[in-house]
Write a protein that binds this DNA or RNA. Structure first.
Lengths: 194, 194
DNA sequence: CGCGACGTTGATTTGCCTCAACGATTGTGG
DNA sequence: CCACAATCGTTGAGGCAAATCAACGTCGCG
């Protein structure tokens, strides 16, 4: 067994999977490495893959009509990332995904994943549960966007993702929160002054 | 067979389910009716159930610290509704759900649903796919909130959910879009003037 | 009819944006 | 190792979209 296997075992920890099923699973994953600045997925690409982060950091962002970037998601160790709107329907990406800290990933294609669901039902459960968690956090984010000020959203973000904050630039946080870098700067100043 | 069965068959259209599995499934659903104004779920309730709408309209809303309501979701025919943040983790509701048009529902408990996933794998697939769709639409909503003006969000809402618009008050739309009723009124006036 | 719920309109305020300029920090080539 | 540029963050002045506050019209219904 090489280290790749160990990492995939880790991915499905908590799910009892036979040795045989595990062979089926690991054959469908491919490893890849990215450097800071690399674009993993471009807007308008057809989205075939779902990506699992072993290490590093990525961000999925959307560019609106006026050219502004809006970050939908960051992904660090043990997170999945893709353009799911496109991935689930095998359509074209509306977002791009870039590497913001050198990263190591596994990818699996939609086709392989659908086959895995049939061959190894625990995998479908695994992804359903992942999706449930992601769904719940999107739900909280929507409620936060509806009910909180920029300052509140910032402090919530910092409290919720202290590990992500360390890896990213302030302008990435701003684009995630839906504010400008200038506003974020003023908010941070304000907080620093107690 | 009573009409209930027919409705549940309809629920899973497109999924080939044996007669025997179908008996297992239908036994876990319970029917209920609501009148306009009824509260299906209160904030702080433990959330045991997921609800399927046969007819009528409901809304899930969150009340923030200042007492303002924010609508997360509407549900009309063939939609599911619950406080999923709580349902998935069997925790306390952070939202309430009220009936805004007399409604007829089916409910299924989390426990029964988890058992169904094991007994009838197509059910897990059904809910995974539902979740994928809901996830994608939440994603679009977040991007819309980040990148669009109130007027743009309103026109997008009307275009996306023309069937829902008919059932609900303007102040419900406003609380979904994250604006005040006054602002929505001005936006509508503006649009009416071309 | 009269009351409460809903929607509209106006005046004013405000949170955040825009635009512009300027520090601070990081990276890179000479 | 320094010089310089690019990137990133900060600060200020002014503007604008939407909120707030207040009043009033309208509709449906007991």
């Amino acid at each position: 067994m090489d280290t790749g296997n160990i990492e995939i075992v880790e991915m499905f920890k908590g799910f009892s999977i036979t040795q045989e099923d595990f062979r089926t699973i690991e054959n469908k994953f491919q490893h890849l490495k990215l450097h800071k600045g690399d674009i993993l997925l471009h807007e308008n690409d057809i989205v075939y893959n779902n990506y699992y982060v072993l290490e590093g950091c990525l961000r999925a962002y959307f560019i609106d009509d006026s050219g502004k970037e809006h970050t939908l998601q960051f992904a660090v160790k043990d997170w999945w990332i893709s353009d799911y709107t496109a991935f689930f329907s095998t359509g074209k990406a509306i977002m791009s995904i870039e590497c913001i800290v050198d990263a190591s990933l596994y990818k699996i294609s939609k086709n392989d994943l659908e086959h895995l669901y049939l061959e190894v039902p625990q995998i479908e459960t695994y992804f359903r549960k992942k999706l449930e968690k992601a769904f719940a956090s999107f739900q909280k984010r929507i409620l936060g966007n509806l009910s909180q000020s920029a300052k509140e959203r910032y402090t919530t973000f910092i409290a919720t993702y202290p590990n992500i904050e360390q890896s990213i630039k302030n302008y990435h946080i701003a684009s995630y929160l839906g504010i400008t870098t200038e506003s974020l700067s003023r908010i941070r100043k304000d907080i620093a002054l107690k």
